[in-house]
Design a protein around this nucleic acid. Structure first.
Lengths: 144, 144
DNA sequence: TCGAATCCCTATCAATTTACTAGAGATTCA
DNA sequence: TGAATCTCTAGTAAATTGATAGGGATTCGA
């Protein structure tokens, strides 16, 4: 699996929204600034995430984006696959076919399963929990 | 992990050499024909595999390529990494840095470990054994 | 109801990567 | 010697990536 910059921007944007609890819509400009993402590029990504049913949006003054699902119902795999398309380690195209009985087919299936095992079982609620726990551990070690 | 066409050609070429036992050097043209790989492209790949210490070569009439190691000493990971470079799911470049304490770093490490767990523990001897076993199972089911 | 703030949509683009191809040179062996 | 093979350096068309440009459509507040 290769996660493109765009893919990671999408994940960071969703994470940012998760980390703010539900509440008010957040402006693109705010997310862009907080996460260090080019704003115009982020616009495209957020719009795509909305198409995927991950986000809601509202226009106009005091508009912005908000989560359409709760963090425990969004997995990393969901977001990546929606942004990057299917995640096979080898894509078989019309131009580069591979015999259906190649010695590598089983191997690629194993790899794909291993990757899915991680990203499809990690929700943004998990990420947020780990993140918070990490931050508090750091805070404690500072005090010592 | 994304395996490029070039990467898979490299794997197929090594597999082809493994499947022929040791013996005589095999010509590029033969490997290309047997595996359906553009010959000139394969030349570059085989040369690169030689640089990596996987293959030996001999020029001239009756020349060709042969294995430099035995199949149980070559893993799929070795070959892919040598052809494709390091296999991180997200490469951090000068242009697209990520804070060293991003919430995703641990996740990417998990994914990389999961992938490595598969490809670094699969040798070409394994692939060959599985392949042979699969073929004989098919042969048996034909007879029934 | 006006207008400012925001999301929305389409188009374009430079740089890089990918998957090759071309052609000549260097070795080996018979 | 000369034919067969590997070796090396370029070049290249197509696709992808990571953006940018410039408006248009909504919404809300005053």
């Amino acid at each position: 699996m290769d996660v493109s910059v765009k893919g990671e921007y999408a994940l960071r944007a969703v994470f940012e929204l998760c980390s703010r609890g539900a509440s008010e819509p957040v402006k693109i400009a705010d997310i862009a600034a907080k996460q260090g993402i080019p704003q115009k590029f982020l616009e495209l990504i957020l719009s795509q995430l909305k198409q995927g049913g991950f986000l809601n949006s509202r226009r106009g003054a005091s508009g912005g984006y908000s989560l359409a699902k709760s963090p425990e119902d969004i997995t990393v795999g969901d977001v990546i696959r929606h942004i990057e398309g299917p995640l096979a380690t080898t894509r078989l195209s019309d131009d580069h076919p591979r015999p259906s009985d190649s010695p590598f087919n089983d191997l690629w299936r194993e790899v794909d399963a291993a990757v899915s095992g991680v990203i499809d079982h990690t929700t943004f609620a998990d990420l947020l929990a780990r993140w918070k726990e990490k931050r508090t551990r750091q805070a404690v070690s500072w005090q010592i």
